[in-house]
Design a protein around this nucleic acid. Sequence first.
DNA 1: CTGTTAGCGCTTTCAG
DNA 2: CTGAAAGCGCTAACAG
Lengths: 338, 338
Amino acid sequence: MKRNGLGAERPKRPTLETVAARAGVSRATVSRVVNGEARVSPDVRATVLRAVQELGYVPNAAARSLVTRRTDSVALVLSVPRHGGEALISAVVQYVTSVLEGAGKQITLMLADTAESHRRIVRHVEARQVDGVVLVPPDGPDTLTERLARTGVPVVLLGKPAIASLVPHVDVDNAGGARAATRHLLDRGRRRIGVVCGPMDLVAVQDRLNGHLATLHEDGLRPMIALAGLDGESGAAAARELLSGGQAPDAVFATSDELAIGAMEAARERGLRVPEDLAVVGFGDIHAASCTTPALTTVRVPAADQALALARLLLSRLDGRHTSSVVLPTRLVVRAST
Amino acid sequence: MKRNGLGAERPKRPTLETVAARAGVSRATVSRVVNGEARVSPDVRATVLRAVQELGYVPNAAARSLVTRRTDSVALVLSVPRHGGEALISAVVQYVTSVLEGAGKQITLMLADTAESHRRIVRHVEARQVDGVVLVPPDGPDTLTERLARTGVPVVLLGKPAIASLVPHVDVDNAGGARAATRHLLDRGRRRIGVVCGPMDLVAVQDRLNGHLATLHEDGLRPMIALAGLDGESGAAAARELLSGGQAPDAVFATSDELAIGAMEAARERGLRVPEDLAVVGFGDIHAASCTTPALTTVRVPAADQALALARLLLSRLDGRHTSSVVLPTRLVVRAST
DNA sequence: CTGTTAGCGCTTTCAG
DNA sequence: CTGAAAGCGCTAACAG
């Protein structure tokens, strides 16, 4: 164990051969021990393990992968969140990696932002550089999901895809959450409920709107819809529109917390009190939702659970088990804005 | 190009050999073309490229890596953010990946949460499974940074490490931000400035506190420090402590926005108006900072820039260029809470 | 239970 | 400028 401090010398990593020589056995035997195969006598195994230890041997993944044709790695493909998706991205990165690493997988992070990046990803998967793919999220005008599915490599999605697909996904119960939120407003005696609705090209927004509409319909009420974008300012604008309409609402359901916060801002501008004059409920339970005055009633989506379910779903598929999509429950968090 | 729709057949990816046969040349020549070497006649190159195209040839990374001993991949090592680090994690994942992929690197995501994971990471790097490492963040009681640095593989850090290190890092000017925030309070005529201070084991907190203290000192003022944790509730508790002390403050500087928001909550409980009775300034400019009433004055830290700088720093090191740490400027964002 | 023997697909001298 | 040949480090039959 003599070393000079220069770091200029090439330590020359030990190979199976080195270990075999040291342990006085063949390469094959060392390989068996390293891979935990049963058919090795205990004493030989011990000798080999000692040699491995002493030499600091670490198997060369490239060589192994070359012959086994497995990579023991999966791709985590992320699209840039359009707005405010930080919490979800963070949870996905953390929990998906945690579960998959626990199962001995290596995680390759890939960004799906440009058309070029989509090509690269498809090539990577076609070349079997990964054993599986976690795709987050499946939205977008392209067909990345289907192109990946066609490679025959197991793919799982976070979020229901825009077009129905055989690829299994994990999603939260957006419709159910919206129903709960709307029902809550109804229970509070509100009857003129406006909805500040995010971009309809997002499946989650569609589902939330549908849940809302269905609940209104059950009570024979008419919807009042104002379209918005993703940020608070557009939510405020939509709310102003609602508020200055002929039939002023006594409550607002927003398809996201950002929009809801914008709506509260708009109410304040008009001198309306929340919740007395206007009750507001959002969706997502982002951190800011609990920081507003009054604090925002909203629908909590389980980010960590989603990520965990996603990772487990992929593991099932990698094991060849039959799998179907999973939908996680959401929960209404009642605060002061209603 | 005949295929049945079953997908059961093994398409058997083409290899160099296949392409060579098709193009009527040798493996070596195809290899040269694929790797863009100059010494190939134009017409042969064209023929080969056509064959590559027609066959859909993609080089096998494992085989290549086995012989070249390069991996063209870097590890992105993340620690779980203790609280509220989502925005930073999201930015890092996005921008670091973007820059590094642009440079032809593959990103391997690894979590540094447990001691076991640290061992795995070190082994992975020692085995030269990656050409470089991005470590986020370097905090923590362990010595992962130094262990990785000792492998001889280029390493860069996000955030200044607790113990001085030769490993280059990217950080934001925490002290400068705190000075600006404190100076701003002073300019507003405040003289009794309390500080709600996060955990001192975080280097960023230390730097922020130091910047604050130095500025107070310049004006001959005495500090009033209350210790807090990371969440809003602990910020509120620390603020209550400050507010009920003998010398009640007319302003509060918090080392994070979460704490500042908690402090505003505490002020409200006591019937104090913000900013009239108590000015509050935070640090970080998280999303919630602009959603409070009044909106929070705070110090913005450039998350995206940090991530970009981090990626570029690693690229420099991979190219063997000399590199030193970089400190990014912060900016005071004045809102209604002061 | 252990050793021998072939390669996996690619790059890289070394000749020609 | 191109081809032939020699492995990179490992696993997987196949014998023994």
